[in-house]
Design a protein around this nucleic acid. Structure first.
Lengths: 195, 195
DNA sequence: GTCTATATTCAGATAGAC
DNA sequence: GTCTATCTGAATATAGAC
């Protein structure tokens, strides 16, 4: 903050690195990818890159954070759009970028460790999505869109867990249609049609 | 097979190792646990243990396979019991052994690699559970227990994916009640009560 | 801020004695 | 079958020059 532009410059460089990382992981996949490989993709040495991040784990966590930002922008230009409605599109997009899905499940697996930077990221991410979903389900129940027998908290958790589990299954069996399963789950929430 | 007892003895020793491994992982947790730690728990050196397994990855895959065997026996003494009915109990039991859950999600994350021994294990495991579930759902639809609007394949995949995703969430947030979510999902399959 | 070079750590695999 | 000892390789992290 003290010197002119230094802060913004640092942020810009970080984003440049993160976007290069996203691009290379989406293109080449992610399987125990090393910091060096990301550094090469960003035209930097390993140390040049780690100058901008505290550690390997922070780097990979920030890549995921950046991915969420990009996805949120791409999913909908309408700031009023519901999460419920954009979620299937995000999932469908995931099936275009297996490397990023692999990165996501890998870090999710490491996230239980409270020392890991991904711990905070996944905890907050889950909480945020969960609260948003609960609110949307409750609103849908008031409007008559969703079945009132649905428990909003259970349904919200289950949809998010379903999405995570589908990604694991899909990496193993890429013929699985993740988005179709998500859509069917949301469909099952709807009120029975009046006879 | 040629010499008396040698084959059976080898199998017995493997099982002894696997049971020791299950015990220590359940008790101490699993976080990038090394072969050496498993070896120590089984009163063996690293090489003494790896004499019985081709590699680290095969060892850990076999630990999971053994876990499934033990779980299947413990879940129900009745060979006629449906998977649908024993599944919530298995999940409930999982919440007593976080180390084994951690091992499971860790290997599941590595399983997409076709060279990894866990690849075959998870593929077959998923297929087996899926087929069993599809058959039980169809039978339940014929008997009137389950809603006939349910797509059996989608529902079966979704229940298995839900279970996987819940484990990831639960490792992050151990207050989450995995079994309650599984039970709610199965409950949602039931036919609407006649008015 | 970025680099080269190196220290450090660690784990899996292997050789060969008993 | 089991051990001790060692090899090998990988990858992060650090020191210090430019």
């Amino acid at each position: 903050m003290a010197r002119r532009g230094s802060y913004a410059k640092g942020v810009a460089k970080r984003e440049e690195i993160l976007d290069a990382a996203l691009e290379v992981i989406a293109r080449e996949g992610f399987r125990k990818t090393s910091v060096r490989e990301i550094a090469t993709a960003a035209n930097l040495s390993q140390t040049g890159l780690l100058h901008h991040f505290a550690s390997k784990n922070e780097l990979f966590t920030e890549i995921l954070r950046r991915r969420d930002e990009v996805d949120a922008v791409n999913a909908s230009t309408d700031p009023e759009a519901r999460f419920i409605d954009t979620f299937p599109m995000i999932i469908r997009h995931n099936s275009k970028v297996p490397g990023l899905v692999q990165l996501y499940v890998s870090l999710a697996t490491e996230a239980p460790d409270p020392e890991h930077p991904a711990h905070k990221f996944f905890t907050e991410r889950f909480e945020g999505f969960r609260e948003e979903l609960v609110a949307e389900i409750q609103e849908g129940q008031r409007s008559g869109e969703f079945n009132t027998r649905l428990n909003p908290e259970l349904a919200a958790n289950s949809l998010l867990a379903l999405a995570d589990g589908l990604q694991t299954q899909w990496l193993l069996t890429p013929t699985l249609d993740m988005a179709a399963h998500i859509e069917a789950a949301i469909e099952s929430w709807r009120s029975d049609p009046k006879p």
